[in-house]
Structures are given as structure tokens and as C-alpha cells.
């Protein structure tokens, strides 16, 4: 039983990172209607800047580097939108999605090109002390990660679902042209939203360390787990993204704990995605029927 509890706690801790990524993916989907497949690569790139440039080259204290990395992540988000995704959005889903794959490959490869195929020992901003909890230790770092998720999820939920800003985000996503006609500051809103998304990717990269050492592709794998949750919520729901991510984290942890075959957890996540698709299928059918009534 304690073993089970231990896995659950570890799974929840891991799920917080998935949740961070899922939140970023949903935010970007809400404004640009694209599944940003480059999200993980953005996070890794920013985190490598954190380790190699800000701490390594510049010798900044960890806390300062942490803040600076969030800015870099935000800048990456804005840059990716301005230079790559924004210009092709009007050409349809296919091109936009392909573009995010291009950016993913570009950033991943650029990381290797600049810093080599290493897995740097990323330091945490938070103390390494551990609190005993249900048979396993939960570190302050992990608690902090959970705190960030709560803060970000709450803040975004308020911003997107309860304010006029969120309404404008929805309007811009539906019809950017009409939003401009109405006089909405489309450019600014898109920029701010992608900046939030990019910063959340950087945050996920820096907090990833309690899962594993960070390599170039790590966060892209995390992105896959997060997509399960995002699919469940139709890429739209922030609460489902968070809860789903925690669920995937726990499932993953249990699978890894009880079945020793390497990679079995990956297989379970794939099955979970198939399940999520069936759920999504049902909800699409319902929404079609609702529309048909009018």
C-alpha cells in the first residue's frame, strides 16, 4: 500500500510538469488555433540558455538566471509567432502544424549544434530539502512546481475565462480580420498570449529536473503526455488540462512502478491517448447535434 501511495505521489509530482506544458499548449491553441508541437523544444532551448549561458558563461546567481530564462521563453514564444506561425496561419491548419514541426526540429537541432548532445545538470532555484510524505520524500522543488502550476492555472483561468481580455482572445482566434475591423489591439494580444505560453515552456524546462536529466528531446516526450490531457479537454479547457496531466502522471508512474519492461509506461500513455480520442469523438458528436438543432 505504501508502495502504491509512493507511486501516486511521485506521479502527481511528475504530473505537475506535464500540466505546465499542457497549460502552455492550451493557451497557444486558444489564441492561434494551432497545436504548438514546438512547445517542448522551446522549453529545452530556454533551459539550455539558463544553464550554459546565464549560469555558465555569465555566472549569474540561479535566481536571476531563472527570471531571465522566463523572459527568454517569452521572447521565444513571441519570436516563433511573429517569424514562423503567424505568417502561415491564414494558409490553414496543415501548414501551420507543419511549421511548428519545422520549428521543433530547428530548435532541437540548434540546441545540439550550440551546446553539443549533452545532458546538463540543471540546478534548481529551490532548496533540495525533502519533506516526508506518505512513505516518499517530496522535495521543496516539487512543491514549488506544484505551486507554480496552481498559480498559472488559476491566473490563466481567470484571465481567459473571466475577463474581457479572454473574450478578445477567443474573438481573435475565430476571426482575426474581424477583430481588427472592430479595433481590437490584435497584435498586442497575440504577442502577450504567446509570451505567456513561451514563458510557461521555459518554466517547465527548468522544473523538469525532478523527472529526469534534461536532454534535447525530453520535453517533446513530455509534450506527448500533455497532449493526452489537452485532447481530453478539446485543447480548450484549462482545468481538464491540469487534472488530465496529473492523471497521466499517476498512470505513468504506476505503469513504470509495477511493470518493469522498459518503456511500458510510454505504451500506456499511447493507449490513454486512444481513449481520450474516443471521449473527444463522443463530445464532437454531441456538439454537432447541438448545432443541428438550430
Amino acid at each position: 500500500m505504501t508502495r502504491f501511495l509512493g507511486y501516486v505521489v511521485a506521479g502527481l509530482a511528475n504530473g505537475t510538469i506535464y500540466a505546465l506544458v499542457a497549460l502552455g499548449v492550451v493557451v497557444i491553441y486558444r489564441i492561434s488555433r494551432v497545436v504548438n508541437l514546438a512547445h517542448g523544444a522551446m522549453g529545452v532551448f530556454a533551459t539550455y540558455c539558463f544553464f550554459y549561458v546565464f549560469i555558465g558563461d555569465w555566472g549569474l546567481p540561479v535566481a536571476a538566471a531563472f527570471v531571465l530564462t522566463l523572459v527568454v521563453g517569452a521572447g521565444l514564444g513571441v519570436g516563433v509567432e511573429r517569424a514562423f506561425v503567424g505568417p502561415v496561419r491564414s494558409r490553414g491548419t496543415l501548414h501551420t502544424l507543419v511549421m511548428t514541426v519545422g520549428v521543433l526540429l530547428l530548435l532541437t537541432e540548434a540546441t545540439v549544434q550550440f551546446w553539443g548532445p549533452n545532458t546538463p545538470p540543471i540546478p534548481s532555484v529551490f532548496p533540495d530539502t525533502s519533506i516526508r510524505f506518505g512513505g516518499t520524500g517530496v522535495s521543496v522543488h516539487q512543491f514549488a512546481a506544484a505551486g507554480f502550476v496552481l498559480l498559472l492555472a488559476g491566473g490563466l483561468f481567470y484571465l481567459l475565462n473571466r475577463t474581457r481580455y479572454g473574450t478578445a482572445v477567443e474573438a481573435i482566434a475565430e476571426d482575426p480580420g474581424a477583430a481588427r475591423i472592430v479595433g481590437l489591439p490584435v497584435r498586442n494580444i497575440v504577442t502577450v498570449t504567446w509570451a505567456i505560453g513561451g514563458a510557461s515552456a521555459a518554466l517547465a524546462g527548468m522544473l523538469y529536473i525532478h523527472l529526469n536529466t534534461l536532454d534535447q528531446i525530453s520535453l517533446t516526450f513530455v509534450l506527448i503526455y500533455s497532449l493526452v490531457a489537452a485532447v481530453l479537454g478539446g485543447f480548450n479547457s484549462l482545468p481538464i488540462a491540469v487534472l488530465g496531466s496529473l492523471g497521466v502522471g499517476v498512470t505513468f508512474s504506476l505503469a513504470q512502478g509495477y511493470v518493469k519492461t522498459p518503456g511500458f509506461a510510454e505504451f500506456v500513455v499511447f493507449l490513454a491517448l486512444l481513449g481520450a480520442l474516443l471521449v473527444q469523438q463522443r463530445s464532437q458528436q454531441t456538439s454537432l447535434e447541438t448545432v443541428a438543432e438550430f
Partner: peptide
């Protein structure tokens, strides 16, 4: 070009 996914009020 109304925003179809938003309510009348939000439009």
C-alpha cells in the same frame, strides 16, 4: 463577420 463562438453580449 460576427464572432460565432461568442455570445451576443460578448460580441
Amino acid at each position: 463577420r460576427v464572432f460565432p463562438g461568442l455570445s451576443v453580449r460578448d460580441n
